[in-house]
Amino acid sequence: MLATISFFALAVFGLGALSVATDSDIITVPGLGQVPGAVAMLAAVVAFALSLWGSLRRSHPSFLAAPAVGLAAALAHLVVMWIAVAAASGDLIVATVVAGDLVRGGASLVLLIAAAIAAWGGIALRRTRAQHPQWPWERDEQE
């Protein structure tokens, strides 16, 4: 759960920073509204959570799963964005242009990197078997 929240936070920060750095909007097509972006981000978060969950089910998950989780989240975002823009605009060419701009403009790369970082953190937490912190006297009761 922490890794999924971390992915969403890193993605929002990264996309905001990209927008500020390039002085442009992530999606520049007028009249689309916010729905395609919101639906695509929801799909990316769900894809991230499901693919990371699949990796964490193993007793000793590999850090090599982090790039795959990142790729799954970025591709889910791109595909759902294409579908959402095609549905909203009714034009396949506009949807393809938006998807191409996401890749060319760096938004897909930002999502891939954010997902890979968050997945690495989630895998690290699972591998170390991190638990809730305890006071010293709470540990004495268990021994």
Rank of each mutant, 00 (worst) to 15 (best):
M1Y: 09
M1R: 11
L2N: 12
T4Q: 11
A9E: 13
L10G: 10
L10A: 14
A11M: 11
V12G: 04
L15S: 14
L15D: 06
G16S: 10
G16Q: 12
S19F: 08
S19T: 08
S19G: 13
V20H: 01
D25A: 15
I27V: 11
T28N: 15
V29D: 04
V29I: 14
G31K: 11
L32I: 12
G33L: 10
G37K: 03
A38L: 14
A38P: 07
A40Y: 02
M41G: 06
A43W: 03
F48T: 05
W53A: 00
W53H: 10
S55P: 00
S55G: 08
S59D: 11
H60C: 04
L64E: 05
P67L: 05
P67V: 00
P67Q: 04
P67N: 01
G70Q: 05
A72G: 05
A72W: 00
A73T: 10
L75E: 09
H77D: 11
M81R: 01
W82I: 06
A95Y: 01
T96F: 06
V97E: 15
V98G: 04
V98P: 05
D101Q: 12
R104S: 14
L109T: 11
V110Y: 02
V110C: 07
A118E: 00
A124P: 12
L125D: 09
T128P: 04
T128K: 11
T128R: 14
R129D: 11
R129A: 13
R129S: 15
R129L: 14
A130K: 12
Q131I: 10
H132C: 06
P133D: 10
W135H: 10
W135I: 11
E138Q: 14
R139V: 09
R139S: 13
D140L: 15
E141Y: 11
E141V: 09
